[in-house]
Design a binder for these strands. Sequence first.
DNA 1: AGCGGTCAAGTTGAT
DNA 2: ATCAACTTGACCGCT
Length: 269
Amino acid sequence: MIRFGLCCIFKEEPIRFGRATAGFLLKFSPAERRERLSKICLANAQSLFRALAFCRQNGIGCFRINSQILPLKTHPDLGYEVSDLPDAKTIMDTFKACGRFGRDHDIRTTFHPDQFIVLSSPHADVVARSVADLEYQAEVAGWVNADAINIHAGGVYGDKASALMRLRETVEMLSDPVRKRLTLENDDKSYSPRDLLPVCEDMQIPLTYDVHHHRCLKDGLTLEQATAQAAATWNREPLFHLSSPEKGWESGAPRHHHDYIDIRDLPKL
DNA sequence: AGCGGTCAAGTTGAT
DNA sequence: ATCAACTTGACCGCT
């Protein structure tokens, strides 16, 4: 039995996730900043609960949580600890209620840190900021009981083997909350399933197989082989990504994602 | 209320 | 050299 999931944002349902901008917040006193951030964080925790309730009501088994659920959490000037926010207890309690709801109704949650999270970068500061962001998402993942923090392998920098070696070294140093949830996903430009499978198998990192990306960046593996080999890297229910090209496979840019999925793109197997 | 410029961050490939 | 793309529009000053 396959469960299907939703991704981050609602268009029709009145469920919204707020954000904040650094330039605006910096105009206020530190206390005022914490007050504003606290309100957004609390509203987002409550929105997440309603998102999960929507999933339950509509037979949806998985929900991807957006990376700015706690806005500016690791920003160099405005970063904060949830425990320092005025609504800290309510925020954490609400997230934990999301976790119980997900457990009670078997709704899986996942994270997908954005493109700035790059563990293969040769720049130490980029890696350090990336790790900080992973730590923040793992903290929330602990509250909401999310079992996957899924990232891409990042850049190649002209030498894929060296880049993957840097990634492996960084993974070795991750904290346990991040490490036990970390998964790698094949992308559409640089890293195919064949590139990532050896890393995933060696280090026991599950591979999130994205069939759309694989169709854009082929590697000699068939869809069936990649699916089976990716599934074998999971010590729990595997996670897959599926999407459709915005203007069809015959267009010049099949990489662009459509808002909806063409059922013909769902692999028969 | 609505419009438009802007928003923390990395890397790649198309133009 | 610029820019869109990536998992996803939302925020905020101005009129």
